[in-house]
């Protein structure tokens, strides 16, 4: 057999195989909805879709990181609500300027993530339980901060959520795209990313190889919290108001997007780009079903079915790539 050093071409082929399936599913959904609705295949639809996907995108990137280290973060929806409430109160009541309030919002998310990470590694508690606790705590914090009121902010925050004239997408979406690209680079090209994958694959091996996995895991949870804060900035900006009830069930959408993208819940394997495809699939599905006016029960049935089918398809895709290599 000899050395199987991969040529650049093989790498490109592998990449094509990696993303082909996702692109196909996405194209099929878009095609289907375009055929069923006269107004789906329009720039307006895609522009609103892209702008709305920004918050879920950044949160799903954070979730991908957490799942890669074989953890899970159930608190992202609540942390988003907490960050949004802080942002709303800072702007609507304290009269802070938008950049300062947004920074505070992201810091809030980072802090919540840091608590998740610190508790998870310090006492070696499954992150499922720690973040389940944070899910409640952050939600309670959101109600407390916002005094259980929707905080109306208005145009002062519209800047990043509003579509830019000419290109039709918002700065939020472009930031989200940048987060995806940076996330993918961190995961595949940096030592930190390599350690993340290694920890998710087998933490014991990493430890015996002389690397302390704990700070790395803690930082990953912090990143996830920070991205939830960023998602809160995006969502609040888009809606012009901060709702302490925001993001209920968002963690499940994020996990669904990540899993559709082929990231393993067992850790050690994941791709931020594929997560982005997962987000797009969920967003297109939601927009399409809304646009067709499908009623709630059918919407849920269809969304659930698509998630399961996408994950099953991913199992086959992996078998194929495995057989090839």
């Amino acid at each position: 057999m000899g050395e199987l050093r991969p040529s650049r071409r093989a790498a490109i082929q592998r990449m094509a195989a990696e993303y082909a399936g996702m692109t196909l599913v996405l194209a099929a959904l878009v095609g289907l909805f375009s055929a069923m609705s006269d107004h789906f295949f329009t720039t307006a639809t895609f522009s609103t879709l892209a702008n709305r996907a920004a918050d879920l995108t950044v949160i799903a990137v954070g979730m991908t990181f957490v799942l890669v280290v074989a953890g899970i973060d159930l608190s992202v929806g609540s942390v988003l609500a907490l960050g949004g409430s802080v942002l709303g109160v800072a702007m609507a009541q304290w009269g802070w300027p938008m950049p300062a309030a947004a920074a505070l919002c992201i810091v809030t998310g980072l802090a919540a993530g840091a608590v998740n990470g610190a508790i998870t590694v310090a006492w070696a508690i499954p992150s499922f339980i720690v973040t389940l606790g944070m899910l409640e705590i952050a939600r309670g914090g959101a109600y407390l901060v916002a005094n259980e009121r929707t905080q109306y902010i208005g145009d002062a925050i519209a800047g990043i959520g509003a579509p830019l004239a000419g290109i039709g997408v918002s700065p939020a979406f472009m930031i989200a795209l940048a987060v995806v690209i940076i996330g993918q680079i961190v995961l595949t090209r940096t030592v930190f990313g390599r350690y993340m994958i290694a920890i998710g694959t087998n933490e014991q091996v990493v430890r015996l190889s002389g690397i302390d996995p704990r700070p790395i895991k803690a930082i990953v949870f912090m990143i996830c919290g920070g991205l939830a804060g960023l998602g809160a900035v995006f969502q609040t900006s888009r809606l012009g108001a901060a709702d302490p009830n925001a993001g209920i069930g968002l963690e499940l959408s994020a996990i669904a997007a990540v899993v559709i993208g082929g990231t393993s819940l067992m850790g050690g394997r994941g791709s931020v780009i594929n997560t982005f495809f997962g987000v797009l699939i969920i967003a297109v599905l939601e927009a399409g079903l809304n646009q067709l006016g499908v009623q709630e029960p059918a919407k849920r049935l269809i969304t659930g079915a698509v998630i399961v089918v996408a994950v099953v398809a991913d199992v086959y895709r992996q078998k194929l790539t495995r057989a090839r290599s």
Partner: peptide, 17 residues
């Protein structure tokens, strides 16, 4: 169990430490 990242390539296993 303790020595290798089984699902990772030889390259990553070699350079891990």
């Amino acid at each position: 169990q303790d020595g290798l990242l089984l699902s990772q390539p030889v390259r990553a296993n070699t350079t891990l430490a």
